[in-house]
Amino acid sequence: MTPKELVLALFTAAFVDHDPEAARQLVTPDYIQHNPQVPTGADGLVGLIPLVADSGMTATTHRVITEGDLVVLHNTYDNADAFGAASLAAFDIFRVEDGKVAEHWDNLQPIPETTASGRGMTDGPTDITDRDRTAENKELVLGFVQDVLGGAAPQNAPNYMDPEVYMQHNPNLEDGLAGLLAGTQAWADQGFVITTFEPQIVVAEGNFVFVASDATVSGKPWAFFDLWRVEDGKIVEHWDVVSPTPSEMAHENGKF
């Protein structure tokens, strides 16, 4: 199986069919887990599956982004009260090694009833296009992350995007560069100041570029999982899942 096929088979076994043994066959025995609440190893994943089944939680995958041995799923979890909220938006990242799924990272965020832009956290285009432009789109997005989100040169924002054409799926931000800047300022006014923003995982396929970043917000660790869509050399759309990183975890692998 390709990495994409393998990851989708694992996701189906764990979250749709609720088949622990099928899931075990698809992962390495020393499966590395980064979800803060789930123990590491194949046993940690297998032990989670009955809890998912008993909770009635359902999962929907909206996008699949693949590059090399990494596969990103853009998911929604419903009936997920046992895991923190009725509905959760999530990015799940899997690393494949020698025909098995070897590692998993994720970020989850409750889905609000309304959003600033009127868009949902997971709706919008899903088709992957422009695969021949993957490398240049990745470079464009990483430049945007460094200059604009990381604060190295925010004045360069027009090099990466049309300030008026930035479709926003973050529930707290309005469209456009103005919406991004206003939202960032509003967050700072509430005491949330981003001082570091360091990409840890980057997965690009065609017009989609995903970046998982380790950040410091007012002195505390946060994780920002962002997905951008690029069109004709400009960033035009953004989705994200943001959460604080807990100080205590069910393993010693860290968030990243």
Rank of each mutant, 00 (worst) to 15 (best):
F11S: 14
A82L: 13
V202R: 06
R229W: 10
L48D: 08
A13N: 00
P3R: 00
E205N: 03
V145N: 12
D81W: 10
R63H: 03
S117Q: 03
P199S: 07
D147K: 02
T245V: 15
N170Q: 09
E139T: 11
E139Q: 12
L108D: 11
E198T: 07
V101A: 12
M249K: 01
A188K: 13
L180V: 10
L8F: 05
D147G: 06
E21W: 00
V148E: 14
S213R: 05
G143P: 08
G254A: 03
K138R: 15
G118E: 09
W187E: 15
E198N: 10
G150Q: 09
S213G: 06
A212C: 10
A22C: 01
A42I: 01
T195M: 12
D232L: 10
P50S: 06
T129R: 13
I128G: 05
L26Y: 03
S87Y: 08
Y77G: 06
E231L: 10
I93Q: 09
D132W: 01
V193P: 10
V193T: 13
G84M: 10
F224M: 08
N170Y: 03
H18M: 11
T61D: 07
V202E: 15
I32Q: 14
R133A: 13
D132N: 07
K100L: 15
F210K: 02
A82K: 07
A14F: 01
T60H: 15
T216V: 12
A135V: 09
I111S: 08
P50H: 05
H169N: 05
T114E: 15
N172P: 08
G41W: 01
V46M: 12
V27N: 01
A102I: 04
D17Q: 10
N107G: 13
G124F: 04
D30N: 14
L140W: 03
D232Q: 14
P20G: 02
T115V: 07
E97Q: 14
L180M: 12
V72I: 09
W239K: 01
A85M: 07
I128T: 10
E164V: 01
L149T: 01
A215G: 08
M249P: 05
R229G: 09
T115L: 13
W105E: 08
P221T: 03
I93T: 13
A204R: 00
